[in-house]
């Protein structure tokens, strides 16, 4: 199992799911109507490291974070 958390304004509780790659995570999240609008504009981190590779291999217990568009200052 991996856990997916949603940062900032997405305001959804974390979810747990079975996934071997980020592609598996995308498959699950794209089926969620509340999340689908966010996916095209969110960056992704695994265990607090930014990831840009859809084929990234996940391990049991990994924590995936979705980071929506930012605006500090």
């Amino acid at each position: 199992m991996v856990i997916v958390e949603f940062l900032g304004p997405i305001a959804l509780a974390p979810i747990e799911l079975e996934a071997k790659t980020l592609g598996d995570v995308a498959t699950v999240l794209q089926a969620n109507a509340l999340l689908e609008p966010w996916l095209g504009k969110c960056a992704v981190a695994v265990n607090d490291n930014m990831v840009k590779d859809m084929g990234y291999l996940l391990k049991d217990g990994d924590r995936i974070s979705l980071l929506p568009p930012v605006c500090g200052g």
């Binding site: 498959t27 504009k41 969110c42 960056a43 840009k52 929506p68």
Partner: peptide, 17 residues
């Protein structure tokens, strides 16, 4: 939202599978 910027690498999970 209208003043916010997608971070580097944004959209990874939103692409076609």
């Amino acid at each position: 939202e209208d003043r916010s910027t997608p971070m580097n690498g944004a959209g990874l999970l939103g692409g076609k599978l």
